[in-house]
Amino acid sequence: MIALSQERWRGIVLGAFGVLLFLGLWQLIGVNRWAGLTWPPLTDVLTFLFNPSRRALFGRAMSASFSMIALGYVTGAAIGIVLAGIAHLVHPLRPGLDRLASVVHAIPAIALAPLFIVMLSREMTGMAIAALNVFFVIYVATTSGLVASTAAHRDLFQVFGASPVKRLMRLDLPAALPAIVSGLKYAVPAAFIGAILGEWFGSSRGLGLLMVSAMQNFQIPLLWSAVLIASTASLLVFAAMSVVEHLVYRRYR
């Protein structure tokens, strides 16, 4: 574990250097006002963000946004996996579900917002758009993963007289797991984007609302803080999913 190759070490060092360079540039541009007053130094943003008096404000926004993101993520993933499973088991349904997924993906979120606002509510719109974004990623990943089993495995299951459901549960789904987990990883930023967009269309709470109102009212540190929170949260969940992905790949491939 500790004995990483020289190349790995080089990659880690260079990567850390790159991230530090990025943060340093951010700070430098902010301190010297090269991009004007609307680009604050990183330290200003962090000071603003961690000021105890704002804990309640950010706490409320985070709990509103994160609960919608989680709900949308789980809903979208569940629908994606179930529909992909149906498309896999009942083959004639497959082209119709494929088309539905790509049409849903092609409709811009801004066009769906008024529908969701009417059909659900302003608060739930972010959840719905997040769910749709996640659904598309997971549906595509799962349908491609479900055909990943090898011909020898499929022959084996047929000779041993496995029923279609047994085959799905014991062969196709486990074989699809790496693809599904990769899909779940890439769906993380998609869920964040969906929820934040949804909040831009008139939600009364959440990080998205914070961004829009801060933008319009020139509350620069607040604006950057909200973006920083959303980005960091997405990055952390993405990193956690990368670890899960690594473990799954090791076991299932």
Partner: peptide, 16 residues
């Protein structure tokens, strides 16, 4: 950057 919601940068860029 591909693991963060890049669209959330729109308000920041707009302000800058």
């Amino acid at each position: 950057f591909s693991s963060v919601p890049v669209v959330a940068l729109i308000p920041v860029i707009a302000r800058i």
